[in-house]
């Protein structure tokens, strides 16, 4: 048993809502494990259970071989938790916040300074500024510093990059990579599909159930369909028209273009082009592309949706 996190059949319901449906997964030590899923998929519930904030209705979860229900006290020493919502004291300064959390974990900033140095040094010039007056990216760095100050073995980051600009998001993932190098296990959730490829393992989660757990590369490899990126002058009409084609499995907007998936070997580029010109589309460009995590997610969502019906 070398797993940092071991979860078996974890269940949580809120009244009629099944927030988590018998979720199982394990995270190896030193791994960067990502939960990818839309809002309402159950990510936050899962993180709150792992952080010992709420009790599961069924199943079990171990963190570093401690049970989250029985040994919650020990777990609180072991984990660093960063909730999705910024929850540090807005009326305390940057330094006061960090010192406060260091103290209640029974340590000092100085003792673990080398661990947070790289992140904290970026906000240290503003250490007398109140946390409420920081920018989104700086708040997030401070929150990460506070979650790290007691040298946790496992970091639980619930949607750390939501509401943060693209540059800060990239910086943040760089920081996570370096923390990983120091041997810290990181479990992170995000609604952004593009961040998935930065994880060692990803779990695609939807409606409280995990659809797939794999490495990002394997998730992409297992994509069963062919994929084109299609763009024309009228993208909305394009989507409607594409969905009319019998060979098409799905068509959805992806940035400026539309992604069109089809059963392999059943449709050629030329057929699509011909069909679209007949429908009166202009400037049609079609390129075969490799799927992204988002494509995989959409595909999985659709098939699991059909299975439910």
């Amino acid at each position: 048993m070398n797993n940092a996190v071991e979860v078996l059949n974890l269940t949580k319901t809120y009244g009629d809502v099944h927030a988590l449906k018998e979720i199982s997964f394990s995270v190896t030590k030193g791994e960067l494990f990502g939960f990818i899923g839309p809002d309402g998929a159950g990510k936050t519930t899962l993180f709150r259970i792992l952080a010992t904030l709420i009790l599961p209705d069924g199943g079990s979860a171990l963190i570093e071989e401690n049970d989250i229900v029985k040994d919650y006290r020990k777990i609180r020493q072991l984990i660093g938790y960063m909730p999705g919502r910024f929850s540090l004291y807005q009326d305390l300064s940057v330094e006061e916040n960090l010192r406060f959390f260091a103290t209640i974990f029974g340590t000092t900033i100085e003792e673990n300074y080398d661990l947070v140095k790289e992140i904290y040094s970026q906000i240290e010039p503003f250490k007398t500024r109140k946390a409420g007056q920081l920018s989104g990216g700086m708040k997030q760095k401070l929150a990460l510093s506070c979650a790290l100050i007691h040298k946790p073995d496992v970091l639980l980051l619930d949607e750390p990059t939501t509401g943060v600009d693209a540059v800060s998001r990239q910086e943040f993932w760089e920081m996570l990579k370096r923390l990983k190098e120091q041997g810290i296990t990181i479990v992170v959730s995000t609604p952004y599909m593009d961040e998935a490829s930065l994880c060692d393992q990803v779990a695609l989660i939807q409606d409280g159930a995990i659809m797939q757990i794999s490495t990002p590369a394997k998730v992409i490899d297992s994509y069963p369909l062919g994929l084109y990126s299609v763009s024309t002058s009228d993208n909305y009409q394009l989507l409607l028209d594409l969905k009319q084609l019998p060979q098409v499995c799905s068509a959805f907007a992806y940035g400026q273009a539309a992604h069109l998936s089809y059963r392999k070997g059943e449709m050629t580029k030329e057929e699509v082009k011909l069909y679209l010109s007949k429908k009166g589309h202009q400037d049609v460009t079609i390129t075969p592309i490799k799927p992204t995590i988002e494509d995989c997610f959409m595909e999985l969502m659709q098939t699991s949706g059909q299975a439910d019906k």
Binding site: I79, Y81, P83, S87, Y89, Q90, F101, I104, G106
Partner: peptide
């Protein structure tokens, strides 16, 4: 209300 209790509750305090 501020959500800070969340952060306090995960500490061993």
């Amino acid at each position: 209300e501020m959500g800070t209790i969340e952060q306090i509750n995960v500490t061993p305090i």
